[in-house]
């Protein structure tokens, strides 16, 4: 384990150094990313300005959910983005090279691409979250404060799991299967807002199939001190983020099946 951590740091160092070779264009990309995500929140503020509230939710409350989602997604993008570019590795055969090495393939794929550029979204997400928590007038105890990183961690795991799943599909098909991406990016878009505003089928999709509610809406409601809005027993809300971790572990099992399929078809 210690060896893997050291190795991961080494990979990360390499990735960062090679991105730093193009320092100016990195700075541009990161700034661009920050601006794009900044516009996104500005648009949300514009809507609140016009409509006052989103059903029972205030801008601050929505901003908490928005911040958790974006921070979690930025972390997943930074650390699991390798799975997103992975279909190209299968197509051009460079995945074979990973199989030639005495390391787990999932580890190598994850370590192959660490995108610093995502620091733009991360910064914006943290800023929105920090602003909302500081000025939203929530009464937060220590447990609530602990729930914030837990929800973020669960979310990062869940989004990473989705990246793994979309990567796995490329073992079976070379056609870009956008279905998973639809769920991933659609999930980010959807969980910026409280899940309770959506129609039932949509709520169920993101609670039971892809449990994004568990890492965002449910713990969010608990940490803002309004568990009654979540429509679930309170202990559930506190444990919900672990669903994200379980989702990632399950995705990695699917990954192993995919690798086995790959080595028996060599597609």
């Amino acid at each position: 384990m210690a060896r893997l951590v050291r190795l991961y740091m080494h990979y990360a160092g390499i990735s960062i150094r090679s991105q730093m070779q193009y320092r100016a264009s990195f700075a541009m990309a990161a700034t661009g990313h920050l601006v794009v995500t900044g516009f996104d929140f500005a648009a949300l503020a514009v809507l609140f300005r016009r409509f006052g509230s989103l059903v029972e939710w205030s801008l601050h409350e929505v901003a908490v959910l928005y911040g958790i989602t974006h921070v979690a997604f930025a972390l997943a993008e930074a650390f699991a983005r390798g799975f997103d570019v992975f279909p190209a590795m299968v197509r051009d055969g460079s995945f074979d090279r990973l199989l030639l090495r005495p390391l787990s393939t999932a580890f190598q794929v994850a370590a192959s691409e660490i995108q610093l550029m995502r620091i733009g979204r991360l910064t914006q997400g943290l800023a929105v979250l920090g602003w909302a928590l500081a000025t939203g007038g929530f009464s937060l105890g220590l447990a609530h404060w602990l729930l914030v990183p837990l929800a973020i961690l669960g979310g990062a795991c869940l989004f990473s799991g989705l990246f793994v799943l979309s990567g796995v599909l490329s073992f079976w098909t070379i056609e870009t299967l956008e279905v998973v991406n639809t769920v991933t990016y659609g999930g980010v878009e959807a969980t910026q807002y409280p899940l309770s505003i959506y129609r039932p089928w949509f709520r169920h999709l993101f609670t039971f199939v892809v449990p994004l509610a568990c890492v965002n809406f449910l713990p969010g409601a608990a940490l803002m001190g309004m568990p009654e809005r979540a429509g679930a027993p309170e202990w559930c809300l506190w444990l919900a983020p672990f669903a994200g971790v379980l989702f990632l572990l399950a995705s990695l099992q699917v990954w192993r099946v995919g690798v086995r399929h790959y080595t028996s078809t060599g597609s």
């Binding site: 809507l47 016009r50 409509f51 006052g52 509230s53 989103l54 059903v55 639809t182 659609g186 878009e189 959807a190 807002y193 505003i197 959506y198 129609r199 949509f202």
Partner: peptide
């Protein structure tokens, strides 16, 4: 995506 956005707007219009 369109469905998500429509639902969000529906909710906003419900609020005011």
């Amino acid at each position: 995506w369109g469905l998500i956005r429509v639902m969000v707007f529906e909710a906003f219009y419900r609020s005011s």
